[in-house]
Design a protein around this nucleic acid. Sequence first.
DNA 1: TTTATTAATGAACATTATTCGATAAAAACT
DNA 2: AGTTTTTATCGAATAATGTTCATTAATAAA
Lengths: 171, 171
Amino acid sequence: MSAFSTNVTMHDIQLDRIDLEILDYLQKNSRMTNADLARELGMAPSGILERVRKLEQKGALVQYTARVNPEAVNQNLLAFIFIKVADGLGCDEADKLLSEIEAIQEVHHITGEDCYLVKIRVSSSGELMQFMKTSLRNIPNIVSTRTTIVLETVKENQHIVIKRDTENDES
Amino acid sequence: MSAFSTNVTMHDIQLDRIDLEILDYLQKNSRMTNADLARELGMAPSGILERVRKLEQKGALVQYTARVNPEAVNQNLLAFIFIKVADGLGCDEADKLLSEIEAIQEVHHITGEDCYLVKIRVSSSGELMQFMKTSLRNIPNIVSTRTTIVLETVKENQHIVIKRDTENDES
DNA sequence: TTTATTAATGAACATTATTCGATAAAAACT
DNA sequence: AGTTTTTATCGAATAATGTTCATTAATAAA
C-alpha cells in the first residue's frame, strides 16, 4: 500500500516545474484531489496520478499527514532537550533509541557543545519527568541534558519554501 | 472551501474513542479515504464524513499536509535560533514579524534566558546569513541571537501520541 | 411523557481514482 | 542521420469514492 520510499538520498532527483507545483499544492492540502490538481495544472488526472506516484517513489513526497491540535488530545507540553553524549561515539545506538520513542518528534545532531537537540511532546510536566527518568536512562554515555520548556507556540508547521527556479518549462 | 477553524482554543472539546481513532488514522495517512475509515471503524462513509467535518470545525484537525523531502527542493539547511528581546515587551510585534517569514517553521516562547526559539529552514548558510541580516533586523528590541546549526536530522515528524484511555471523555 | 437535538444510516447521484492502450516526444544507440 | 528504446501524456472506460438528504434511532431537555 504505502508507496513511499524509505532512506532515500537525493542525489539524482530531478524535478521540473510541474513537480514542484504538485509538491506545493499537496503541502498546502494533501487531501486535494488529483482531479483538482489536474485542473490547476492543465493536465489529465491520469497524468497527475503518474507524477504523484513517481514523486512518492523518488522520495520527494515523504508522507501525507493530518496535523492534530495537541490541545485536543491533551498533549500540551512541548519541550526541547539538549543532550550531550560522551565523544559522540555511541551515537548510532543513541540515534536508534531516541528515534524509537514516540513522544519524541525530532532528533537532530547539532553543532556546538551538545550532541543532540530533541523535540518532545507530552501531556504534562509529570510525564516529561517520567520520560527523563526512564527512557533517557537507557541511552548510553549521556553526559548531560538541558531542557527548555515551551511556554507558548506562536507558529508551527512543516511547510517548506519551494522555489520555482529558472527552469526550462513548456509554458 | 477550507473548513478548518482558526485560532481555536480547546476548552470544551469533547472527543470520543471514534474521534480519536479518526485523528490517528488521518495523522498516519491523510489521504486515507472516508470509505476506508468507514470500513476500519465499522461505520457508514457518510457518518465518517460528518465526524471529520466536525473535527475540522472544532479545530482538532488543523491541516492536511504532505511532508516534502527538503533535499528534493534544495532546502538543506536547518537551524534553530534563540532570540532574546528586551523585556519581552515588544513581543506581540515580534511574534507577528517572525511568523510572517516563510522560512521560519516554528516560533516558540520559551523558558530561560532567551525569549524565543525559532526553527528555520533555508537552502544554504548564505541564505541563513542573508536572513539574519535582513529579516531579523526589522524586529524591534532584539538583544541577542544564538544560532544552532543542524548537522543531520535523525527523526522529524509532527506525529502526536494519541492516548485512547478508556475514560478519555472528561465531562 | 413529550419535544428537541444529535448521530448514524442507506440509497441516489456526482465526482474522482485508476487502469490501459494509443500516441508522441525525447534519449540512447548503431 | 536513422533506428530503437524509454518516457510522459492523454483519453476513454470502469471501479471506487465523495456527498447529499430523507429517515430512523438514540439521547438529552423541557
